[in-house]
Simulated assay, not measured.
Amino acid sequence: MDQHAQRHGARAARSHGTVEPEHGATTAARHPELAPGTSGMKGRARHIPATVSLPIITALAFGCFIIFRTHTAGIKGGPAMLYGLAGAVVSGALGLVVAHFQSTLITETRASAYGALFGCSLGWVYSLGGEAILKSCAFGFTMGAVMFVAALYVFRTHRTREPHGLHRPHKTHHRDDRSHRLPAATH
Protein backbone atom coordinates (compact mmCIF):
# COMPACT_ATOMS: atom_id res chain seq x y z
CA MET A 1 0.00 0.00 0.00
CA ASP A 2 1.24 3.44 -0.75
CA GLN A 3 2.06 5.95 1.97
CA HIS A 4 -0.79 8.31 1.13
CA ALA A 5 -3.37 5.57 1.64
CA GLN A 6 -1.78 4.49 4.90
CA ARG A 7 -1.69 8.06 6.19
CA HIS A 8 -5.43 8.56 5.60
CA GLY A 9 -6.52 5.17 6.85
CA ALA A 10 -7.65 3.77 3.49
CA ARG A 11 -7.43 0.08 2.86
CA ALA A 12 -6.72 -1.38 -0.52
CA ALA A 13 -8.54 -4.50 -1.59
CA ARG A 14 -6.71 -7.75 -1.98
CA SER A 15 -7.33 -7.88 -5.72
CA HIS A 16 -5.42 -5.80 -8.22
CA GLY A 17 -6.19 -2.12 -7.76
CA THR A 18 -9.85 -2.30 -6.70
CA VAL A 19 -11.26 -0.25 -3.88
CA GLU A 20 -13.54 -1.61 -1.22
CA PRO A 21 -17.14 -0.42 -1.48
CA GLU A 22 -17.10 1.15 1.96
CA HIS A 23 -14.66 3.76 0.69
CA GLY A 24 -16.93 5.27 -1.95
CA ALA A 25 -16.80 2.85 -4.83
CA THR A 26 -20.00 2.32 -6.80
CA THR A 27 -21.53 -1.05 -6.11
CA ALA A 28 -24.56 -2.98 -7.18
CA ALA A 29 -26.07 -2.40 -3.74
CA ARG A 30 -26.14 1.37 -4.31
CA HIS A 31 -27.09 1.19 -8.00
CA PRO A 32 -29.18 -1.93 -8.74
CA GLU A 33 -29.14 -1.22 -12.49
CA LEU A 34 -25.38 -1.93 -12.45
CA ALA A 35 -25.79 -5.35 -10.86
CA PRO A 36 -24.76 -8.25 -13.05
CA GLY A 37 -27.73 -10.04 -14.60
CA THR A 38 -30.05 -7.06 -14.26
CA SER A 39 -31.73 -5.99 -17.45
CA GLY A 40 -31.32 -2.41 -18.57
CA MET A 41 -35.09 -1.87 -18.72
CA LYS A 42 -35.51 -2.81 -15.07
CA GLY A 43 -32.83 -0.33 -14.06
CA ARG A 44 -34.34 2.45 -16.17
CA ALA A 45 -37.84 1.75 -14.83
CA ARG A 46 -36.76 2.90 -11.40
CA HIS A 47 -35.99 6.35 -12.80
CA ILE A 48 -39.37 7.07 -14.40
CA PRO A 49 -41.02 9.89 -12.45
CA ALA A 50 -44.53 9.52 -11.10
CA THR A 51 -45.75 12.36 -13.33
CA VAL A 52 -45.10 10.05 -16.29
CA SER A 53 -45.83 6.57 -14.95
CA LEU A 54 -49.13 7.30 -13.17
CA PRO A 55 -50.90 8.89 -16.18
CA ILE A 56 -49.75 6.02 -18.40
CA ILE A 57 -50.93 3.35 -15.95
CA THR A 58 -54.23 5.20 -15.46
CA ALA A 59 -54.71 5.51 -19.24
CA LEU A 60 -54.15 1.78 -19.70
CA ALA A 61 -56.68 0.98 -16.98
CA PHE A 62 -59.11 3.48 -18.52
CA GLY A 63 -58.68 1.83 -21.94
CA CYS A 64 -59.49 -1.56 -20.41
CA PHE A 65 -62.57 -0.05 -18.75
CA ILE A 66 -63.69 1.37 -22.12
CA ILE A 67 -63.32 -2.05 -23.72
CA PHE A 68 -65.39 -3.59 -20.92
CA ARG A 69 -68.06 -0.88 -21.13
CA THR A 70 -68.42 -1.05 -24.92
CA HIS A 71 -68.37 -4.84 -24.92
CA THR A 72 -71.20 -5.02 -22.38
CA ALA A 73 -73.14 -2.43 -24.43
CA GLY A 74 -73.11 -4.79 -27.42
CA ILE A 75 -70.07 -3.64 -29.41
CA LYS A 76 -67.98 -6.72 -30.08
CA GLY A 77 -64.34 -7.40 -30.96
CA GLY A 78 -62.41 -4.91 -33.06
CA PRO A 79 -64.54 -1.79 -32.61
CA ALA A 80 -64.48 -2.22 -28.83
CA MET A 81 -60.68 -2.53 -28.96
CA LEU A 82 -60.44 0.60 -31.12
CA TYR A 83 -62.60 2.55 -28.69
CA GLY A 84 -60.38 1.36 -25.85
CA LEU A 85 -57.18 2.23 -27.70
CA ALA A 86 -58.44 5.68 -28.69
CA GLY A 87 -59.65 6.44 -25.18
CA ALA A 88 -56.37 5.27 -23.64
CA VAL A 89 -54.26 7.37 -26.03
CA VAL A 90 -56.32 10.54 -25.63
CA SER A 91 -56.74 10.30 -21.85
CA GLY A 92 -53.08 9.34 -21.45
CA ALA A 93 -51.90 12.31 -23.50
CA LEU A 94 -54.16 14.73 -21.62
CA GLY A 95 -53.12 13.18 -18.30
CA LEU A 96 -49.46 13.66 -19.18
CA VAL A 97 -50.12 17.31 -20.05
CA VAL A 98 -51.96 17.95 -16.77
CA ALA A 99 -49.29 16.14 -14.75
CA HIS A 100 -46.49 18.00 -16.54
CA PHE A 101 -47.95 21.46 -15.99
CA GLN A 102 -49.45 20.88 -12.53
CA SER A 103 -46.45 22.45 -10.79
CA THR A 104 -47.19 25.77 -12.51
CA LEU A 105 -50.88 25.83 -11.53
CA ILE A 106 -52.41 27.19 -8.37
CA THR A 107 -54.33 24.74 -6.22
CA GLU A 108 -57.85 25.50 -7.45
CA THR A 109 -56.83 25.46 -11.11
CA ARG A 110 -54.98 22.19 -10.70
CA ALA A 111 -58.00 20.59 -8.99
CA SER A 112 -60.22 21.95 -11.80
CA ALA A 113 -57.95 20.43 -14.44
CA TYR A 114 -58.10 16.99 -12.81
CA GLY A 115 -61.86 17.31 -12.32
CA ALA A 116 -62.44 18.32 -15.95
CA LEU A 117 -60.30 15.48 -17.30
CA PHE A 118 -61.99 12.92 -15.05
CA GLY A 119 -65.53 14.22 -15.65
CA CYS A 120 -65.20 14.45 -19.44
CA SER A 121 -63.64 11.01 -19.64
CA LEU A 122 -66.29 9.29 -17.55
CA GLY A 123 -69.13 11.20 -19.24
CA TRP A 124 -67.90 10.00 -22.64
CA VAL A 125 -67.57 6.39 -21.46
CA TYR A 126 -71.04 6.58 -19.94
CA SER A 127 -72.42 7.69 -23.31
CA LEU A 128 -70.81 4.68 -25.03
CA GLY A 129 -73.25 2.45 -23.17
CA GLY A 130 -76.17 3.90 -25.13
CA GLU A 131 -77.27 6.46 -22.55
CA ALA A 132 -78.86 9.77 -23.54
CA ILE A 133 -76.55 12.76 -24.09
CA LEU A 134 -78.10 14.83 -21.30
CA LYS A 135 -77.82 11.95 -18.85
CA SER A 136 -74.18 11.36 -19.88
CA CYS A 137 -73.36 15.05 -19.48
CA ALA A 138 -74.97 15.13 -16.03
CA PHE A 139 -73.04 12.01 -15.00
CA GLY A 140 -69.78 13.46 -16.30
CA PHE A 141 -70.39 16.80 -14.57
CA THR A 142 -71.20 15.06 -11.29
CA MET A 143 -68.10 12.86 -11.43
CA GLY A 144 -65.96 15.88 -12.39
CA ALA A 145 -67.31 17.80 -9.39
CA VAL A 146 -66.54 14.84 -7.11
CA MET A 147 -63.00 14.67 -8.49
CA PHE A 148 -62.58 18.45 -8.07
CA VAL A 149 -63.58 18.25 -4.39
CA ALA A 150 -61.37 15.19 -3.78
CA ALA A 151 -58.37 16.75 -5.53
CA LEU A 152 -58.86 20.05 -3.72
CA TYR A 153 -59.00 18.21 -0.40
CA VAL A 154 -55.81 16.27 -1.17
CA PHE A 155 -53.95 19.34 -2.40
CA ARG A 156 -54.99 21.46 0.57
CA THR A 157 -54.23 18.84 3.23
CA HIS A 158 -50.81 17.97 1.78
CA ARG A 159 -49.47 21.48 1.51
CA THR A 160 -45.88 20.58 2.20
CA ARG A 161 -45.80 18.50 -0.98
CA GLU A 162 -47.31 21.25 -3.12
CA PRO A 163 -44.94 22.84 -5.59
CA HIS A 164 -45.92 26.33 -4.46
CA GLY A 165 -45.61 25.56 -0.73
CA LEU A 166 -48.36 26.69 1.57
CA HIS A 167 -51.53 27.88 -0.07
CA ARG A 168 -51.51 31.67 -0.02
CA PRO A 169 -49.38 32.12 3.09
CA HIS A 170 -50.23 35.22 5.07
CA LYS A 171 -47.54 37.67 6.01
CA THR A 172 -47.21 38.30 9.69
CA HIS A 173 -47.07 41.91 10.81
CA HIS A 174 -44.93 42.80 13.77
CA ARG A 175 -45.72 45.78 15.95
CA ASP A 176 -42.14 46.99 15.71
CA ASP A 177 -42.26 47.11 11.93
CA ARG A 178 -43.92 50.46 11.29
CA SER A 179 -42.59 50.93 7.76
CA HIS A 180 -45.51 49.03 6.19
CA ARG A 181 -48.28 50.77 8.11
CA LEU A 182 -50.27 53.61 6.64
CA PRO A 183 -49.95 56.97 8.34
CA ALA A 184 -52.65 57.91 10.79
CA ALA A 185 -55.47 59.89 9.26
CA THR A 186 -55.48 63.60 10.11
CA HIS A 187 -58.63 65.65 9.97
Rank of each mutant, 00 (worst) to 15 (best):
P21S: 11
E33V: 08
A28Q: 00
P32G: 03
H23L: 04
P32M: 00
A35V: 02
M41T: 09
K42P: 04
T27R: 01
G37D: 05
P49R: 10
A29G: 04
R30Y: 15
I48C: 04
M41C: 11
K42Q: 11
E33A: 14
E22D: 06
A29N: 09
E20R: 15
G37P: 02
M41G: 08
G43T: 03
A45L: 15
S39I: 01
P32N: 04
R30Q: 15
G37I: 02
T38A: 08
A35R: 01
T51H: 14
G37K: 12
T27V: 04
L34D: 04
P36L: 13
E33S: 08
A50M: 12
E22Q: 05
G24N: 08
T38Y: 09
H47P: 02
T27Y: 03
T26H: 03
E20D: 10
H47D: 00
A35P: 01
P49W: 13
G43K: 02
T26N: 01
T38L: 13
P21N: 11
P21K: 12
E20G: 08
A35M: 00
H31K: 10
A25Q: 00
S39F: 09
L34A: 06
A35L: 06
P49G: 06
P36N: 10
P21T: 07
E22L: 05
M41H: 14
P21Q: 10
P49Y: 10
